[in-house]
Nucleic acid binder design. Structure first.
Lengths: 123, 123, 123, 123
DNA sequence: GTGGTCTAGACCACC
DNA sequence: GTGGTCTAGACCACG
């Protein structure tokens, strides 16, 4: 498992881990019932505290992305892919709504926004 | 000055104030050299501590979006309008980048994104 | 806030705290938007670690029993009382199902079970 | 011997085995002095470690519910039937006490509880 | 004063 | 080896 952490970022480390693992699950890099790195192993790997990795895993478990078997490890939960994508869509919609709200306030046109999206998709 | 604060939000109060004032400046509701509400008056109005409003104003002044005249009050600094717009653009770009990043990961097409943007612009 | 902890119990301390606070909310001892003790205060009061109280509060917040405002404290969330009681009912149903399942296995009659319930209600 | 294990359950595997065997003893499926499956055989059957089945058997033997004859195997100890029944009764009573306690807190009536019991007995 | 985050280090049960 | 729980102690942002 390769995760790039940004210590300077405002988003806490455990959330960065969550986001990365979620992405790998949704993107298909991690498949159902596949074992995840142990919290201790990942902590050592990332040179952070065990508590921080555990916190990330706890959060992911609560959200249904993985399940944990004490004494065995954590595994990717086979989630309803449709529901998963629906959740993602909502998240994306939120980002876009924010962007559009700011744009409207500042008098930026729809065209400019679409331009930004296009460039972002390509880049 | 009408500002709607959300106590439960994760974004701190003083930032909510900053954001709202910036929005009003960039949107033209607040014009150059126009006086802003006094720190104390705003605090009373919003039923929050003076410390908090002061912190918001300090932040805005530090960023050059308002200037304070001792004994007179605070005023909109029009001269940094360009920088404000630029800041907003970066912010918007960030939101869009996030949206596109998530979309790419989950295999959501460019078309769907543009659809979301369109709906958001209209709604 | 008075909570009696049982160190010998198998149920972890943080869960004992959760259960007690839930009970007080459902029972009406704690009312909507009422402030809860600070995590630090409660920890000192119960002579346990701050981390343990925080964990309990985190869990309760996730389940929607309270909301937390950083820098201000935690407050009882006004929950849909009907939904709350429905949740409780499910929980109770689970306990009863377990009891009945065991009873059936051991050839204990329905009458005996109802007898136990009656005695428990009175006692 | 047919035992359904739940890997994801919080109750450890060895306890799940203990509970099932106790159920079969108390329910009459396993009779006095009847031979139990061998530790190794059961482990193979359930696809778990021998250590785990051994632990379950050790626990049951310690509690007096089976006895082991070196080189022959393990057998149901009929003489502790009364204690087993008593243990079960306490367990059942505990579940009911929990249910009633929760019911009282949330103002659920005795009638509703008895209704739940009746339904559970029938279903 | 409040909570949010991260740390190191310990003990336990389970496999 | 694994996770589950609890501990003490630190730094930060916010009001």
């Amino acid at each position: 498992m390769h995760i790039l952490l940004d210590n300077r970022s405002n988003t806490p480390i455990y959330r960065q881990i969550c986001a990365e693992i979620k992405s790998q699950i949704i993107g298909g890099t991690l498949r159902g019932d596949e074992p995840l790195p142990s919290i201790r192993g990942l902590a050592k790997d990332l040179r952070i505290s065990v508590i921080t990795t555990k916190r990330a895993y706890d959060e992911l478990e609560r959200e249904g992305f993985l399940y944990t078997v004490a004494g065995k490890g954590s595994f990717v939960a086979v989630k309803n892919m449709a529901r998963l994508r629906e959740e993602r869509r909502k998240e994306i919609e939120g980002h876009i709504r924010n962007a559009v709200k700011l744009a409207k306030e500042s008098g930026i046109s729809a065209g400019e926004i679409e331009e930004l999206v296009k460039r972002s998709m390509e880049g």
